[in-house]
């Protein structure tokens, strides 16, 4: 049996893409280089820093450690897929702005995606729960207090947050 030259079908931020890209290309490289979605960043390239975090079927993963083939037929959400599509921010992004949870910004897309998945879960957003959920996202500028405050603030305003988070509820 020879490795079939398959076309890969993948849904990114609600848009279906059918691509000839190599199935062993990292999902991160596909998003950045093929689709021009540069929100997800490469930090360590080894699954330790979380800068490349995107959601696959609603769950945060490191896109530097997933090959494109593994993401085939699945729903990928990047930071570009958040918000209302008309420039309005997602409640998580809005809370980051209001709490001043951004400094250089390199880690922010990853942090926002981890936070988005957490807010969409049914977990109570205690300090400990938020810190555990964000443990895989490293920020070297600010420390984490404002980030944690921002995420907890979204949790406290849950009904609004839920109403605008339809992107993460897509099913494959």
């Amino acid at each position: 049996m020879s490795a079939p030259a398959i076309k890969i079908r993948i849904t990114v931020n609600g848009t279906v893409h059918v691509t000839d890209a190599s199935p062993t290309m990292r999902l991160l490289d596909f998003l950045r280089n093929e689709l021009g979605l540069t929100g997800a960043k490469e930090g360590c390239g080894g699954g330790e820093c979380g800068a490349c975090t995107v959601l696959v079927d609603g769950a945060p993963i490191c896109s530097c450690l997933m090959v494109l083939g593994s993401a085939a037929e699945r729903q990928v959400t990047t930071v570009e897929g958040l918000g209302d599509g008309a420039g309005g921010l997602d409640p998580v992004q809005q809370a980051f702005v209001e709490e001043g949870a951004v400094q250089c910004g390199y880690c922010t897309p990853g942090l926002v995606m981890s936070a988005r998945a957490l807010v969409d879960s049914d977990k109570e957003l205690t300090d400990e729960v938020v810190r555990t959920a964000l443990a895989g996202n490293i920020c070297r500028c600010t420390g984490y207090k404002k980030v944690v405050d921002a995420v907890r603030k979204v949790g406290a305003a849950a009904p609004d947050a839920q109403a605008t988070s339809d992107h993460s509820k897509e099913q494959p």
């Binding site: 979380g50 945060p60 993963i61 490191c62 450690l65 997933m66 555990t132 959920a133 443990a135 895989g136």
Partner: peptide
């Protein structure tokens, strides 16, 4: 094992 992203994979 790792953090949430790694546990999901």
């Amino acid at each position: 094992v790792g953090a949430a992203q790694i546990q999901n994979m």
